[in-house]
């Protein structure tokens, strides 16, 4: 009766028992599986644990990880992914909502803090345009979504390879990705016109809204982890 969370915790501890070489290969495999977002989390964590147990026993018998993963570990991982069930939509939805609330909540805190501190140093507008703000939030969420997908793709391209040059290239790409998305968001704050009603929001109201959003985020996250109990 272990939850996905417990399995991850147990995995973190047990993994330390692997030899350096075996750990390297297993961790590449683990990241490859965990960055595949379509497969069911619980089932894949269970499989990761089964394979870790297998490796530990093989290691005791003097075998290394390649006897399990074969000569093409990436193809092997793909074969497993194809055999695992897909994540159910009713698990994905609360997870995404929880993350979005968390992001918006933190955003409110930071904005509120800016509203509180900045007026002591510079002049800032007293009201915000509702349409403009909502538009920007949508753009930031969309950028985050695509950013995560591309970032995972980049991470996956560095796995199962000892090629240092390729890894360095990927680092550059990741840096450009981060800088590029920031530039795009900045561009939109600049070109997006004010529209919709103007509202004046006090700094403490941002804190309250932020707090409510973070609590909601934790709550949806909690509901999610409870419904995920399988078996």
């Amino acid at each position: 009766m272990r939850s996905a969370k417990q399995l991850i915790h147990e995995n973190n501890e047990k993994r330390e028992l692997l030899t350096a070489e075996n750990k390297q290969l297993y961790e590449d495999f683990l990241i490859y599986m965990r960055t595949e977002l379509r497969i069911a989390e619980y089932e894949s964590e269970e499989l990761l644990m089964d394979i870790l147990d297998h490796l530990l026993e093989a290691q005791e018998n003097g075998k290394d990880a390649t006897t399990l993963f074969g000569s093409k570990p990436k193809e092997y991982a793909e074969e497993l992914i194809a055999s695992l069930p897909e994540e159910k939509k009713r698990y994905v939805f609360p997870f995404v909502i929880s993350q979005v609330f968390n992001l918006l909540g933190l955003f409110c805190f930071i904005y509120g803090l800016g509203q509180l501190i900045l007026p002591y140093f510079i002049e800032i507008p007293q009201s915000i345009s509702l349409g403009n703000s909502i538009g920007l939030i949508m753009i930031i969420l969309a950028m985050t979504y695509f950013g995560i997908i591309v970032f995972f793709k980049l991470i996956r391209s560095t796995l199962f390879t000892q090629n240092k040059k390729q890894t360095r290239h990927t680092m550059w790409k990741a840096g450009l990705l981060g800088g590029g998305s920031f530039a795009i968001i900045m561009l939109f704050t600049w070109i997006l016109p004010d529209f919709g009603p103007e509202v004046k929001v006090e700094w403490w109201l941002y804190f309250i809204i932020g707090f409510i959003l973070v609590v909601l985020s934790k709550f949806t996250g909690l509901v999610n982890s409870q419904t995920r109990f399988v078996n």
Partner: peptide, 14 residues
């Protein structure tokens, strides 16, 4: 290879 059993086990369980 030792890993071959895991896709099989997943399929059989499914």
């Amino acid at each position: 290879s030792e890993g071959t059993i895991y896709p099989v086990l997943l399929r059989l369980q499914k």
